[in-house]
Amino acid sequence: MSASLQVLYPATDGTHFDYEYYINTHLKMVGEVWGPHMKSALATKGLAGGPDTPPGFHAIATLVFKDGDAMQEAMGKAAPLLDDIPKFTNTTPQMLVGEVIG
Rank of each mutant, 00 (worst) to 15 (best):
T62C: 01
D18H: 11
M38F: 06
A59Q: 02
Q72K: 15
D52V: 13
Y21L: 11
F57Q: 11
D13T: 09
Q94L: 14
T53R: 14
P80G: 08
I101L: 14
M95N: 13
V7D: 05
K45N: 00
L82I: 15
Q6M: 12
I101R: 14
V7S: 06
L42G: 00
T25N: 15
L42R: 12
V97D: 00
K77P: 06
A48V: 10
V100H: 02
A43P: 05
P10Y: 11
D13N: 07
A74P: 04
G102I: 06
G98A: 09
F65I: 01
T89N: 08
L8R: 15
V30P: 05
D67W: 13
F65Y: 10
L27Q: 09
I23W: 06
L81M: 12
A11Y: 12
V7P: 02
K77R: 15
G35R: 11
L42C: 02
G46C: 11
D13A: 13
H16T: 15
V7A: 03
L96M: 14
L47K: 13
T12S: 10
G14C: 06
Y21S: 09
D84S: 07
G68C: 08
T92Y: 01
Q72P: 00
T91G: 01
A3C: 07
Q6I: 00
T92P: 02
I23H: 01
S4Y: 13
P55K: 08
L27N: 05
P55W: 09
N90R: 01
F88V: 06
A48W: 03
H58Q: 10
S2C: 03
G35Q: 12
D83G: 11
G68P: 10
Y21E: 06
K28G: 13
D13W: 03
M75V: 02
G68A: 14
P51L: 14
V97Q: 11
G98P: 12
S2M: 13
H37P: 03
V30K: 01
G49I: 01
D18W: 10
K39V: 00
A43N: 07
T44G: 03
V64L: 09
L82E: 03
L8E: 13
D84R: 02
P36I: 04
P93L: 06
Q6H: 10
P10K: 07
A70W: 01
H58S: 09
K77E: 15
F57G: 01
G31K: 09
S2T: 03
G31S: 12
E20I: 10
K39M: 01
F88N: 04
A41L: 14
L27Y: 05
Q72D: 13
K45G: 00
L82D: 04
M75N: 02
M38V: 05
M1T: 08
P51W: 08
M75I: 04
P86R: 08
L96W: 02
K45L: 06
D52G: 08
Q94W: 05
H26R: 02
P10S: 07
K28A: 15
W34P: 00
I23R: 03
Q6S: 14
H26D: 11
S2F: 06
V100Y: 05
I85G: 05
G31I: 02
M95E: 14
P86C: 09
P54M: 14
S40F: 06
G102C: 04
G46F: 13
D13S: 09
T91E: 04
A74H: 03
